[in-house]
Design a protein around this nucleic acid. Structure first.
Lengths: 335, 335
DNA sequence: TTGTACGCGTTATCAC
DNA sequence: GTGATAACGCGTACAA
């Protein structure tokens, strides 16, 4: 079997407590013995048992991530898995492990969360601001389990989110800089908070140039590609036709673009289009779509970073927006 | 803090060893005391500490899953995350947790695998048959860590895989049943084993009807949408033009279809097309694409099931193909 | 500066 | 049937 702390101690000719102190790099151990002990560890390929350590220190060095883990989740919602990758990356840098947890399972059985902390499976969790969130947040708070929410969420707790307002500004400012003048906004659907934020940024960017939107925003029902056709038709009926559009959703933008092209409009000349997110369509449309891209991997890293701040200082609480977004200029908006 | 076995014992008026026996449902404990103890557990909301249990039994009730966790992994490769969901589902049913592990990190640092088992982080792992696999498999075997590979992989160890040969048969048989007669195969690229398997099924299905392929298979370079145009042009130069095509990759199929339509070909009438996987394009093409769909979630579940068989009986070793595939007939192939 | 001894929460092996 | 008690491997006060 694997070597234990006793084996190391014996080989190095010291007591186990000395070995333990070397591991925590205690300043009261001579450099000489430290070296001897470390060499013994190397030789025996020693790694402390996480169970024993967890038992003694009452922590797990494991962070739970609540995810939607239904069938088709990865296809319908690759975003959260991209965030997951970022979380894992940062955790690994802190020698923490990531445990996958099914958000629905946890939310549907009220005792499940209690069990999670009673079994001491994780030191804390990261969750998404979805419909289960409010209930779960209440439970985590009650059980004093440190957590970070991905996505803005009311209440006194840490969250991180993408700054969609800023993204809207970036997109709009770019179109203006390209010389487009009559700008229109299209949202995914009326009650989509992401669309709302992007609209806000759109308006702010226009305002800063003392401009007005071409017409009130239009909205799709669900943000699907196919809806783009109908929206294009509605745009044609406006008193003042836009020469550029900021579309909140990438699939919707592809649809609008296709419909416009079917009418003989040259995208990127008569009509500029900017949308958001590289995925799923941006690079594959004809012409390629300009987008403001969001670094979800970085968002995951930041969520994890935030969690560790809180773990090390339980009173810590921060609510921060990720500003790191890059505009990818492609043919759909470059005259 | 959470209740311990001592608290339960005290409340039930028994010794801790009795409580432990009740947990393992020992037959030599009277039904009466069992009930008393169980009631106490309920009342105190007791759940055994996984660290203490792990220390005593030397197992972790955790399964590691090796994944590609780079930036953009979730977008480029949602398939493995779908499999991950299936793994988690089955593990949860066995009261096991899933730990996420970065395959690259593990493969790039030779000591990382040793550390994994020395720390007793996981009872075993599931990994994908990618380029790191051979090296990792060697290490896991040497360290006697139970593992299951997703994807066929030479050697004496358990793996599960999708039966791509069978999928190719299904696709081809469907086209023949629709009355198409001159069938052509297009692969993603020459050295893609998945394409090779699908081709084998294609040939087998033709053979069983005493038919020949229209021409030798064609191959793309990478399987991208854009390559479809060039392939369509090459098809036009064949001495005998196919009236139906089995395309190994879904994006490629969408490209070929678009190119054919640009030439005025009516898809589903003059030309039948069948491809594989629902994702990313199948339902969104014009017309919708017929595909043989693979249940990756089920594949994940089966991999986990396989792992538990091996965990419970270390000599167990099975190499099995998932047959569970369904043909989704859409307009691209239905006359 | 180093070593001893106990506690962490459980399982398993014995006695009774 | 039930109850002591010794592991399991590590952290840590306290003693030396």
């Amino acid at each position: 079997m694997a070597a234990t702390i006793h084996d190391v101690a014996r080989l190095a000719g010291v007591a186990i407590s000395t070995v333990s102190k070397v591991m925590s790099d205690s300043p009261r151990i001579s450099a000489l013995t430290k070296n001897r002990v470390r060499e013994a560890m190397q030789q025996l390929n020693y790694h402390p048992s996480r169970h024993a350590r967890g038992l003694a220190r009452n922590c797990t060095e494991t962070l739970g991530v609540l995810m939607p883990l239904r069938r088709n989740s990865a296809f319908q919602n690759p975003y959260v898995f991209e965030i997951l990758c970022g979380i894992e990356r940062h955790c690994a840098s802190q020698h923490y492990s990531v445990m996958l947890l099914d958000a629905e399972a946890l939310a549907s059985k009220p005792k499940a969360v209690q069990q999670l902390v009673a079994e001491r499976k994780v030191d804390g969790v990261i969750l998404h601001a979805d419909l289960h969130a409010p209930q779960l947040i209440r439970q985590f708070t009650a059980l004093a389990l440190p957590f970070v929410v991905i996505g803005r969420q009311p209440g006194h707790h840490s969250w991180v989110d993408v700054d969609n307002v800023h993204a809207g500004e970036i997109a709009t400012a770019h179109l203006l800089a390209q010389g487009y003048q009559h700008l229109q906004f299209i949202g995914n659907h009326l009650h989509d908070t992401i669309s709302a934020d992007r609209l806000q940024g759109f308006l702010r960017a226009l305002e800063s140039q003392h401009l007005q939107p071409c017409a009130p925003p239009l909205y799709a029902q669900a943000g699907h590609y196919a809806e783009g056709l109908g929206l294009w038709a509605r745009l044609q009926q406006l008193p003042m036709r836009p020469d550029a559009i900021v579309v909140a959703g990438n699939p919707l933008a592809a649809g609008v673009m296709a419909a416009a092209q079917a009418d003989g409009i040259r995208i990127g000349y008569e009509l500029g289009i900017v949308s958001f997110d590289e995925y799923p369509y941006a690079e594959q449309t004809q012409p390629p779509l300009s987008v403001v891209d969001i670094d979800l991997f970085a968002l995951g890293e930041q969520a994890a970073r935030e969690w560790f701040l809180q773990w090390n200082k339980p009173t810590h609480c921060s609510q921060s927006l990720l500003l790191d977004q890059r505009l990818l200029v492609r043919a759909s908006s470059s005259r």
